[in-house]
Design a protein around this nucleic acid. Structure first.
Lengths: 210, 210, 210, 210
DNA sequence: TATGAATGAGTCTTCATTCAT
DNA sequence: TATGAATGAAGACTCATTCAT
């Protein structure tokens, strides 16, 4: 035991520390490569060999860091969510009762739109895979809940007594999401998206102001 | 390439009247088999051999009726849409200015919910594939437009001067769709879906009543 | 027995005669269709279904007239040979000792060139299949022998004592064939084909004049 | 399409020095297997699974070394050409002005005959595929040009002023090729091949000696 | 005789995962 | 730990030929 832990202290740690760092970097690189490839050609057209090559690692090592191909994707999506959440959470945490709800909402929708534009392809992949894979669906759901939770926190200060708050926020989230989805990913020439955006905001404002 | 597309045209069965019935029945069987298998195991896990076997035909004959595997799916989805549309259109065409909007909407949401429950798996596949395949996306889009068009016709009688009518109907459609999607496919125990339904209806009612 | 032969005389003949005619026409149409399709897209890319369709007959009936797909080709090639031989034989049979050999040769090469240009694709197919299928090779060989025989007949009048006449004619045939093949099917920009043609003719003239 | 050609470049093994040997050996084995199978049963009847099995590798690995089935054949034919060229080039490079042209020619024809006998079946396949596939035709053409070029080099020393040298050498090549083809692959009992050979040589000698 | 729908074995190719080195 | 060559099952699609009508 001693000798082992000694080894740990004496030899391994020095060696492992940098390796662990490298390991983390490697994992990160794989995730990054996966994300980029999925953004380029979609999940199904991205092979594990592609990912390893792009990450600059061997195919085999990928399976030390991830259970299987989907596991890489899951990690990549998790990271994507984080990136998408960051500006949102920042905005939401700065919420203040005195702020104008509409102005805030406006800014929120901007953020959503930006993020849809920026992550267009992975977003589509996400929608596609969520509908068909329960693990990914669960992750998407969790992400949604996190955002909705944050929104509720922000709103509870403002209107604690609002009935069906959770459901309202849920709908709000989906209205925004739907609008962004439609306007950025599948724009329809017959639709006036700025008009639609106003309608969405009116809808939400009425709902949250009763 | 040329010879291929030529073949497509030439090879497709020139269904003559007396044989048409059988041919249609067989085509129907293949579509049916595809639908069932897709509902069971999803499109990607369903092989052409599976479909042929389930339909009780040979692999080869499938390619007399359909261009390729996706073409079967497209036909199956088209049929699914029709089945889903039928009761909707019936309801919408019976619309009358004196009818209560809320009552009508209520019935509409019932229909949507039923349809989501009944076609749960193929609906998910549809969402999944739409996000990733432009042919299927186009079909889904066209379906959506048909429904939205019908809704607009119904509403134009009632409120011809309503501003942004198209955008409003669009949002209405998506609100209903989202609610049904959530409540039937991925119910969340924290959500009170009947409350959510009320909120959806209020939202819509307010939007359409100005 | 009697009644049978009676039948033959009474009923069958009248009915069969026109049918046989039709049968022959049908067979001819199939051969024609085969030839055209092979000229267009090559033998391997031509399906029996294509042939039947183009000939305006059913797939099944093709197999009453021909043993298998290759058998159609064999018949088509046989016909092609005949078409190619006709002008050649006409020229050769008009041969006369007083004619200028060079002038005659010139005309012969014209014919060969024309025929190569006219039947470019089927000719290539012929070469391709001959190299790999003994039935087709045999047919090609027989065609060659027929032409060479005719040439020999023509030349024997002129130079009966020419040693190795058969071999010389054989070489003559192949020189002409090679020249036509190269110049019409795979022209090489570095080659001066009119110079080559002169060389071919000189070669032959020297050989046949000793 | 883009991703495909990209993959081609990426996927091809970046053979590192230490592994190169094994990789080359394996590639060689696959080529060898292809050659043998093509010689046995022809290209079209040889499946990729056959080739892999005979080479003692898995189906999949074949596609790390070759783009597709035809690419294996192309490599195999390329090698065949090299093997056939080697003795020819040796002979041609040892050419000397003082040498007897006829004697040299005699040796050349021996080599050609040997090579035709040795590579009978693949040679036939080559002819067959050249007539029908432009990639293979291009390769055959290039091979031909290489030989003809070498011949010209050898002859230019001797008879630099010979008019139409290129065309003459071309014809020479085809005369020899035709003779070998006929005599070894499809011998005709009516033909005296040694007489024919003499005629060929006379023909060539006369042509090259003006 | 005629039809043409139907057959189904056979083909090339892909790719997540493993394992000898 | 790391490599990347190797595996091999699986999948979409073709087509000469047959056979029920």
């Amino acid at each position: 035991m001693k000798s082992e832990s000694e080894k740990d202290k004496d030899t391994r740690p020095q060696i492992r520390e940098p390796q662990q760092k490298r390991a983390i970097e490697k994992k990160e690189k794989i995730i990054q490569a996966c994300m980029e490839l999925v953004s380029e050609k979609g999940y199904r057209s991205t092979t594990t060999v592609d990912i390893a090559k792009k990450a600059g690692v061997s195919t085999g090592i990928v399976y030390s860091y991830f259970k299987d191909k989907k596991d890489i994707l899951l990690s990549a999506l998790y990271q994507l969510f984080d990136q998408m959440c960051d500006p949102l959470f920042e905005l939401l945490s700065s919420y203040d009762n005195n702020d104008d709800l509409i102005a805030k909402l406006d800014r929120l929708m901007d953020l959503f739109e930006e993020s849809h534009l920026k992550y267009k392809k992975p977003h589509q992949e996400l929608v596609s895979l969520s509908a068909v894979d329960s693990d990914i669906a669960a992750m998407t759901k969790a992400f949604e809940k996190r955002i909705i939770g944050k929104c509720m926190e922000a709103l509870e200060q403002r209107a604690p007594a609002l009935p069906n708050l959770k459901e309202k926020v849920h709908l709000t989230y989906h209205l925004v999401e739907t609008y962004c989805h439609e306007s950025t990913l599948y724009p329809d020439p017959d639709i006036d998206y700025s008009a639609m955006r106003s309608e969405v905001m009116n809808c939400i404002a009425r709902m949250l102001n009763q």
